[in-house]
Design a binder for these strands. Structure first.
Lengths: 219, 219
DNA sequence: GAGGCTAATGACAGTCACTGACAATTGACA
DNA sequence: TGTCAATTGTCAGTGACTGTCATTAGCCTC
């Protein structure tokens, strides 16, 4: 791997600086309370340059998230083929949480990333974009799952359905983590594991019945 | 029920006109290709008035959707208490499709509503808002389901999980309906029924196994 | 290492969504 | 009919974003 030229390195630095400054300001003055002008002034580039790196103010808020997602997709692609679809997704998510730290830190502190995540969940405009991005991810994942199972994603509805249900649970998990008090990486990992295990039981025809009364676990 | 005064009726007319003109233009020039100024010029009110009725250009695009959702919630609340959670949601959705037509037509033609729905799905900015609105709906539904089952939505994770999975499937259904060729009310109803029935099987530990090879049905 | 090429940046003017403030209008109701 | 309050219009301003064109600065060749 050759060292990129000065031009490339300079671009990377500018980009990283924009991300870092933006996320810092977003997380402590709020997203709407931060103007693009403020960000570019601190980084000392023109507003036009900002919009050459990011197509919108929203996009910069998801720059780190983007890296995390790429990692998940890669991990999923590497799960052993004999795992069922649901287990493969489950293990890829849990496995990703473990190796995320390193990848992020090159750009921003992990702690800033976690704060950003919470800010996204609590900012309506960003939450909306986050959800749309999630469905785009679902499409990607559906295709991977279909491939693993040797199915055509446009013929058999099960890949999309399974992924939709899985993602729904992941989303609820993220929400509850954001609202809760223990906002560590460990906490979100534990919550994810616990909630995914509840999916099967939650879809039983009836919850009150012969095999017990109470829920499996409470948060 | 007394007839509302002139002032009230005038407001309602203005509001309906804004919705109708907006949706017509959105669906045939595209959402981004339509400016608020165009809309208010045709309705002959000031831009400021538009923003007094709708807090954003996005909001007017969801005005009809809003009514539909209110109807679903009402229907769900009226399902017999002995139905399981999943059946109650399923039947409320299917029941809603049947009675939607009348409620909509008072404001816009059903056909315009269906075109609007497709426009939302294919306009990134609106799709994002649509998804956020959907999660807000999920929260509402979770509480209704929890109540039916006599559970506390913050103690037992199953209501939110079941609703998340259910909504995920509904969303995929809407997407595929929008992309498909038969864009009638009947088509979306049939698709909904078919896909919800696939949810159980899709979550089986493995799809290839003793009880058969192929999928249950293809779109 | 001078000079040409091209990618990257800056400066500037303009559009569009949206807001606050205040004045003008118009139903409602005594 | 006159007063009150709700509704609307006007206007000025902000902030995100875009197109255009001039300027700068790595890069590469001779």
């Amino acid at each position: 791997m050759t060292v990129p030229g000065l031009r490339e390195r300079k671009k990377q630095r500018t980009r990283d600086a924009l991300i870092r400054v933006a996320l810092e300001r977003f997380t402590d003055q709020g997203y709407e309370g931060t103007t693009v002008d403020e960000i570019v002034e601190e980084v000392e580039v023109s507003q036009r340059t900002f919009f050459r790196y990011f197509s919108s103010k929203e996009e910069v808020a998801f720059a780190v998230q983007q890296m995390v997602e790429e990692r998940f997709v890669r991990t999923l692609g590497e799960r052993p083929p004999d795992e069922g679809p649901f287990d493969a997704m489950r293990n890829a998510v849990l496995g990703s949480w473990d190796s995320i730290g390193d990848a992020i830190t090159e750009v921003v502190p992990v702690e800033l990333y976690l704060r950003t995540f919470r800010m996204i969940e609590s900012t309506p405009a960003l939450l909306a974009v986050h959800l749309r991005r999630s469905t785009e991810m679902e499409e990607t994942i559906s295709r991977i799952i279909a491939d693993r199972e040797g199915l055509d994603v446009d013929e058999d509805p099960r890949p999309r359905i399974a992924v939709a249900a899985f993602s729904g649970v992941m989303r609820v998990t993220g929400q509850l983590w954001g609202r809760g008090t223990d906002q560590s990486l460990d906490a979100i990992r534990a919550l994810t594991e616990q909630y995914l295990d509840q999916l099967g039981p939650a879809l039983a025809p009836r919850w009150r019945g012969p095999d017990g009364e109470g829920p499996g676990a409470a948060p």
